[in-house]
Nucleic acid binder design. Structure first.
Length: 894
RNA sequence: GGGCGAAUAGCUCAGCUGGUUCAGAGCGCCUGCCUUACACGCAGGAAGUCGGGGGUUCGAAUCCCUCUUCGCCCACCA
């Protein structure tokens, strides 16, 4: 019959057509599955931090999500995959940079309104691109529900939450030292300021006493901030300095008098024991300043240049240039005591990696301790679990040491803070409002809205319910909250995951999900995180273009064990993704073979009709593959349930490639070609087992399995494998006898092939094979699989019993069956003797070791009886094999 | 500075509650095959003191201690 499929799998056209078709039949809609009384299952996904480009991390993350979603969907669960594509915050940063680059600008000076309009026009234009990319790798979310941060629905949720927290006094505003990015010109949360160890210096600077009677040495890593010093602090119990407390120092360079104060925060054992106090530029100093009512002098501009508060010759200098000048002036004045190397942690902006500047400013904060309490309790009670488990400790540790969340950002995009200030000085009312205000609700005077916007995560932490329509009481919300599983990247455990749990507890009175699966990170061969700036990334779409989405997905899944990172070599995409590419092609060709040998519906394997295949019609191989198939179902299902995606992929791979393609399909060829009877049975069994294989693989390789499945078994036009039932284990398929029997067939074929290869028997040359000492399993196997053996091992004649010849190749199978391949005088007797000697020696060692083990009274007494029995069996087998081979040696005259 | 993880074949990694998956897979490598599903394939093969050392146990890649090397998370000692 004609074969419509090309021998080489060509993913391109197939994949895009299939995706379109899936969308047409409403496959991904939770309300379109047509299931009843199904358990509820929700997976939400994180905001991609790049707007228009999918990177490998997202490829990984989304693939794993999709594998689990498809698995659950096939198991009949009502799946809602809520795709949270947040385009504010981080994403917008990228949009802005791309826009600027496109227009050759360094910044926009077009005013807030025009700017926001400009950015959002671009977002609207590029937004769908990431979705198209996710579609290209096969992600099956319900994209209609994709949310954008500035969507009306989401804005309502954000305001609702803000107002509620404000009214509960869990949101407050105040002057504190926050992390400031001088490049992004905004405040950052603690989590956004990534601490990184750097090699720095510790400068020891001398500050003279005002009366000229000596000096005090302070140690600092940041000399430039001394321009803003307003005191020097020492520990009140420090004998060296106690007498100096209350005295004045003359600050060099700026020539200002500052007091010496005593404060417990000072560690007398570090540096010189005296610390310069700069309340405007250091959190500790800020606290000291508050305790001693010291003035704060902000010597820097938002861009981290020296401000007008600094001496004139420093004004406008970059902070590092100012540092050099300050040090130089100290040195010139002989006030630089020494400089030491010093490793310390410095905060870096997580967007642009600029060194963060601690800066005193007025910001909005969320009081976190009350919110963390129930979120921590949920974990402690075991209601929330992490995969891998150890991530739970990180979660708990963060919750226990939680600090208030700085939520205001001095950016032009994102949600404006919904707070209005009355501009009438006599009123001065500050209102948080769910709706825009035009005038003061108290005095009716003019109002202005806070200029700041909210941290992008302030909308993201609400996604599990805001994405379902909250604060309205929607059907989605009742149905899908709480969900079950969150799959995401470990980098955003605190940014996002922990905060979602907190918001869920606070606003929905329940945790949003009970399981958090944290994926690994994609790294290059030097274990560096893949990133655009390093240029060590792989664009998943390149891989899709080259080998198809299924090849990408299989490779990703096969490589991601729980709790470990995934390593790819960006310089060798071909080798990196060869496993997936090869397997996709293998599957495709197995499918081609099966399809070209089916010419209509196959006979049912179970059920009532007259047509049903009877058990006695099954050959040993049929029973074997059915048993293997059942084992594969159990393995894959179990692995997916335990989030061991790599094991699921490996089990399905083994079943399809090793069992089905390498052995079963080879076995049934004569039957299919009509050279042997029973073609209809072979067709029925291969159709069923291949069908099961496709379904087991569908979550990992959706396109190719769908393409093959639709052509198989005369499916109806609207049927999709994605909605086919997940294969159930079938006790009736269990068949230990068939597994043993066909296992021996495999052993025998392999043994003959080995002998053939060993003695360079030409591939076209058939050989005779003689078997002796066979057990009952082997006899049964020969009876039903004689043809298989002779064909696969290229055997001209299979003789039971001795042949009387003595020159040839020997082997012995695990059941003790002796295999003899007579090779006449063509072979080197010496060589065979050596081979046998090696084999006997190997067995001899095993036997000796085993005897010693069993002679050990301790072992026999202490090991479980089952283990002891097993070891006895082993010994018996080895002894028998050794005996057979020793006899062979004697016959050969070795 | 505190907490955690990893080290297994040339490369990337599995090996889960100690004992029949116990030394594995894929890629790479060597040999032979264009056998009418597939050369992105088939058949065969070489290759590892399971990072070093010590311990527990009848038995350790697996559990404990220690050292070495990488990595991650957290951290206001200037």
């Amino acid at each position: 019959m004609s074969n419509p499929l090309a021998p080489q799998y060509n993913p391109g056209a197939i994949e895009s057509d299939l995706y379109r078709w899936w969308e047409q039949i409403g496959l991904f809609r939770a309300d379109g599955n047509g299931r009843e009384r199904a358990p509820i299952y929700v997976i939400v996904m994180p905001p991609p931090n790049v707007t228009a480009v999918l990177h490998m991390g997202h490829g990984l993350n989304n693939t794993i999500q999709d594998v689990l979603v498809r698995f659950e969907r096939m198991r009949g669960k009502d799946v809602l995959w809520l795709p949270g594509t947040d385009h504010a915050g981080i994403a917008t940063q990228n949009v802005v940079e791309r826009l600027l680059a496109k227009e050759g600008q360094t910044r926009f000076d077009i005013g807030r309104e025009a700017f926001v309009e400009r950015v959002w026009a671009h977002v609207r234009e590029t937004g769908p691109i990431i979705i198209d990319q996710l579609k290209a790798i096969g992600c099956s979310a319900d994209w209609r529900r994709t949310y954008f941060t500035l969507d009306d629905g989401l804005s309502r949720a954000v305001r609702e939450v803000f107002v509620r927290l404000y009214e509960k006094r869990l949101i407050y505003r105040g002057h504190y030292i926050i992390n400031w990015c001088p490049r992004c010109l905004t405040a950052l949360s603690n989590e956004e300021a990534e601490k990184e160890e750097v090699e720095g210096k510790l400068w020891h600077l001398r500050y003279p006493l005002a009366d000229g009677s000596g000096h005090v040495t302070v140690a600092t890593t940041r000399p430039e901030t001394m321009l803003g010093d307003t005191a020097v602090a020492v520990h009140p119990d420090d004998e060296r300095y106690r007498a100096l407390i209350g005295r004045q120092l003359r600050l060099p360079v700026v020539n200002r008098l500052v007091p010496i104060v005593g404060d417990e925060a000072v560690d007398a054992s570090f540096g010189s024991g005296a610390v310069k106090v700069t309340p405007a530029h250091d959190p500790t100093d800020f606290e000291i300043g508050k305790r001693h009512k010291l003035p704060s002098i902000d010597v820097m501009t938002p861009e981290a240049r020296m401000s007008l508060a600094a001496p004139e010759r420093f004004q406008g200098l970059d902070r590092y240039e100012a540092r050099r000048r300050v040090v130089a002036e100290f040195e010139a004045a002989g006030m630089l005591e020494k400089v030491e190397d010093h490793r310390h942690a410095v905060g870096h902006c997580y967007r642009c990696e600029t060194v963060v500047e601690p800066r005193l400013s007025e910001q909005w904060f969320v009081r976190m301790a009350p919110l963390a309490e129930p979120a921590l309790a949920a974990y402690r009670k075991g209601r929330l679990r992490f995969v891998p488990e150890r991530r739970g400790d990180e979660y708990a540790q963060w919750m226990e040491n939680i600090r208030d969340w700085c939520i205001s950002r001095q950016l032009w995009w994102g949600h404006r803070i919904p707070v209005w200030y009355c501009e009438d000085d006599r009123c001065g009312k500050v209102v948080a409002s769910r709706t825009d205000l035009a005038r003061c609700p108290d005095c009716g005077g003019p109002v202005r809205q806070d200029e700041d916007v909210l941290d992008t995560w302030f909308s993201s932490w609400l996604v599990p319910f805001s994405g379902l329509g909250w604060p309205d009481d929607t059907g989605d919300l009742r149905r899908f909250y709480p969900g079950n599983t969150l799959v995401t990247a470990p980098e955003i455990l605190f940014f996002w995951v922990a905060r979602m749990v907190m918001s869920g507890c606070e606003f929905m009175h329940d945790i949003p999900f009970d399981t958090v699966y944290l994926t690994g990170t994609v790294r290059d061969t030097q274990h560096r995180k893949m990133s655009k700036s390093l240029g060590n990334g792989i664009d998943p779409l390149d891989v899709v273009g080259l080998y198809g989405a299924d090849a990408l997905r299989y490779t990703i899944v096969a490589g991601s064990a729980v709790g470990t990172d995934v390593i790819f070599d960006p310089n060798d995409i071909e080798t990196s993704f060869a496993p997936g590419r090869n397997f996709a092609n293998k599957l495709w060709n197995a499918g081609r073979f099966v399809l070209s040998n089916l010419d209509g519906p196959t006979r049912p394997l179970a059920g009532q009709g007259v047509d049903v295949v009877q058990r006695r019609e099954l050959q040993l191989a049929d029973r074997w593959i059915l048993a293997r198939c059942d084992a594969a179902v159990v393995e894959v299902t179990d692995a997916l349930q335990r989030f061991r995606l790599n094991e699921a992929a490996a089990a399905a791979y083994r079943f399809v490639w090793s069992d089905l393609a390498d052995w079963y399909i080879e076995q049934i060829k004569p039957r299919l070609y009509g050279d042997q009877p029973g073609g209809d049975v072979a067709r029925a069994v291969v159709a069923q087992t291949f069908d099961v294989g496709l379904r087991l693989l569908h979550p990992v390789m959706p396109f190719i399995t769908e393409a093959l499945w639709r052509r198989l078994l005369g499916r109806l036009a609207h049927e999709s494998i994605a909605l086919a039932p997940w294969p159930a284990p079938d006790q009736r398929a269990a068949d230990a006898e068939a597994l043993r029997g066909f296992g021996l067939v495999q052993e025998l074929v392999t043994a003959v092939r080995q002998i053939r290869a060993e003695y360079d028997v030409a591939p076209s040359q058939a050989v005779r094979v003689a078997l002796s000492n066979l057990g009952p399993d082997m006899r049964g196997a020969i009876e039903s699989e004689r043809g298989t053996i002779t064909r696969l091992a290229k055997v001209s004649e299979l003789v039971l019993g001795e042949t009387g010849e003595r020159v040839g190749g020997h082997a012995v199978l695990t059941d003790g069956t002796a295999v003899f391949v007579p090779l006449g005088d063509a072979i080197d007797v010496r060589k065979e003797c050596d081979r046998l000697a090696d084999e006997v020696a190997r067995l001899g060692k095993l036997v000796a070791g085993q005897r010693a083990k069993l002679a050990n009274e301790q072992f026999v007494a202490k090991a479980p009886p089952i283990v002891v029995e097993r070891e006895r069996q082993k010994l018996a087998t080895w002894e028998e094999q050794e005996g057979v081979l020793t006899k062979k040696r004697e016959l050969l005259g070795c």
